[in-house]
Simulated scan of single mutants.
Amino acid sequence: MTNQYLCAECGIPFPIMHQGFLALPVNDAASLAVFKNGLKPKLIENKLYIPYDSIQSLEEEIQMLEEGGLGEIRAAVTGSELKVPLMIELSVLKERIRNKEMVDVIVSNKFVSYFQPIINLKSHDLFGYEALLRVDHSEKQVPPGMLFEAAHKTGLYSLLDQRARETAIKSRVGKIPNGMKTFINFLPSTIYNPEFCLQHTFSIVDKYNVSPSDLVFEVVETEEINDIDHLKNIFKTYKASGMKVALDDVGSGFATLDILSKLQPDYVKLDRNFISYCDQNTMNQKFLQQAVHISKEMGIKVLGEGIERKEELEFCAAIGMDFAQGYYLGKPVKDPVEQVRA
């Protein structure tokens, strides 16, 4: 990863050494809390350097400072050279210490993508794959949900999301032929300025000579869509670079049918809760038929996800859905399958 496209929000975190100094900016609150707790800092260039000789003593110092009301003050850890990296909130620093193993996984960037097949419901041919992030570790598997939860706590959400996109693009090279789509999740909240934040992703696309038209970026299911204009700007930036965009889990939570006209995605993925036993559940059938009708009127392609039964697949095809994905068709695997049952 080049530094050209790194900013404060997704830069590489500084290492936490077993001994060194906890650095704080000089202000009245910090000075009062430090001296009140009997800590003996060095004062150099408007910073307080508090020595520690073990991770445990570092945690104890942070605890003292938090109890003194300094949880939101920005701090850093440095070695004997007293070079202060980018400071982060003290409460976030504490989480990085507590979640050091997860932080090391994110920093190491040892990720791979697993690919779940997506089929064309009219021809039953493979249309593409969804890329799903996995840790490339032979001894210990880390659930993606746990990894992203740790990233959120430790202020590394943006870095992990960026690396997930990078991994998905690199992983398709030599495995997925040109002309076949890769659906890649992204978190809108990690993209502060699309024109800048997405340049790293676009540089990876260029580096590996991947056709932009083969990539579909989809809003990840856990994200609350509370800033439509921001998401529209992200979609616009992706589309301007020749890529496609998708809205995931439509019908569940925050992704509702009434925002389709505002966002104009290329694809919508209908929530698996509506797909489950849709051949039997009349309420689900009504929603799916409505979703297909509205999407078709706007020229949006429809994908049913979470298909686990033949009957669900047949119902989705019968009401005019374009594509399908789910365990019935294939589970996520490291090496993309070339054929699926349909």
Rank of each mutant, 00 (worst) to 15 (best):
N120R: 11
V142D: 03
G68A: 14
Y129L: 13
L43A: 08
E101F: 10
S158Q: 07
G71L: 09
E61H: 13
L90Y: 01
P85K: 11
S123H: 02
P41S: 01
I97P: 01
G155D: 08
Y157E: 12
Y49D: 09
E149S: 08
D136K: 09
S57F: 02
K153W: 02
A150N: 11
E89C: 13
M146S: 10
Q116W: 14
A168M: 09
S54W: 05
Y49W: 12
D53G: 07
Y129S: 09
Y129H: 10
N109G: 11
A76W: 05
G155M: 08
G79I: 10
K36L: 06
D161V: 01
R134K: 05
R165Y: 04
R163F: 08
R74E: 15
L121Y: 15
E139Q: 14
Y114R: 05
V112D: 03
D161I: 01
S171A: 12
S54D: 04
Q141E: 12
Y157A: 14
S91P: 08
A168P: 02
V173Y: 03
L82I: 06
K36E: 07
A131R: 03
M102Y: 15
K170G: 06
V135I: 03
K36P: 01
A33F: 09
F127A: 12
K47C: 08
A164F: 03
V112G: 00
N46M: 07
F115T: 02
H124T: 13
G128A: 06
L133V: 01
M87G: 06
E61V: 06
R96E: 05
L126N: 00
F35G: 02
Y157F: 14
K140S: 08
D125Y: 04
L86Y: 12
Q116E: 14
I119F: 04
I73E: 11
I73P: 04
I169T: 02
E149I: 08
I118S: 04
N46W: 02
A164S: 07
A164Y: 06
L82E: 11
Q63C: 09
K36R: 10
K47F: 00
M102P: 04
